[in-house]
Amino acid sequence: METVLYLTHTESDGSLGKPALEALSAALQLAQELDGAPPLTIGLIGGEVQAAADALAGCGAGRFMGVAGAELAVSRYSSDAAAAAALVEAAQPTLVVAAATSRFSRALPGVCQRVGGRIDTQVTELQVVDTEPRIERWYYRQRMAATLTRSQRPWFLLLAGGAFPAWEGEAGTAEVEAVPVDMPETRTRVVGTQSASADAHTIRPEADLLFVAGAGWTKKQVDGQPHVTEAEQCIREFVDAAQASLGSSKSLVDQGGEGQQVLSFMSHLHQVGQTGTTPRHRKGLATCCHGEEPHVVGWRFITERRAINLDAGCGWGQGKADVLYVADAFDVMTKVNELLGES
């Protein structure tokens, strides 16, 4: 008989993030579909966990367990791993479901190793067929999807963000069993956070639109000269006006390392594609970017896609975008900015 443990950590303010709520709805569904499985067990990790547990009180979980303490107010491998391992050992689940946050992506693989389990990450779908849990997960940087199941337990599943609906439900009062844990001595001190970019223009998960700037922005324009400063201005203006998330192709951000004149606010963190991110936005607009396959795999979860490129034969025109405008992106985006500015 399968038993499901849902693991979550609190955010710095003690609340639960959206990925955690998404993973919860997936875990609840899984526990429900597994015939004869007891209701879900919830395991919480954080500085304080009661508030978070209360927020989930109405989800129908059978049991709440928690590990709390000052050490767990921050994201750190040694303390997180100790806490998660203690919860798994206390709950003795066969399936462990959690969101692939940066914190759990770092800690849970090691926990899995510690408790002798197996782990799958990049999970985008859970299903139960004849009492057998099955998952869909991605390989080769989102280029291949596999449906699989496995015999080993406990089986850890790290769920990709945005793949499941976030759980919504009544708060209440949850009774949290405190699970004791021997906190290991740690040699790591978490100092804080800093913005990865000097500029506020980054990939913003909440944005509706992804704007991708390709290497063409820094290349020679019709007058035979590059116009990098103008390009920067045009892009910033648009991203501000449209409240868009800003991404780039690899070739654009690689130029920095090649000593070329580049867009000053672009770094590898903006890079969308095989060696970059795979953001989720409803719409995406690619400009001056050729739409090569390794870049477009990063668009896997962009629903509506448009592109502006001077080359009608570019990748976007070959079934990778819904609309390809064969035009000069400098001209078009300048005009778009004008129109957005008018309103």
Binding site: E258, G313, C314
Partner: peptide, 23 residues
């Protein structure tokens, strides 16, 4: 046809990859 008859540019993309290391 997007498979065998493709633009010259696409042949460059589909048929291989030009390596032009910087510097």
């Amino acid at each position: 046809d997007g498979q065998l008859l493709v633009s010259h540019q696409d042949a460059l993309l589909m048929g291989g990859k030009v390596q032009a290391p910087p510097g």
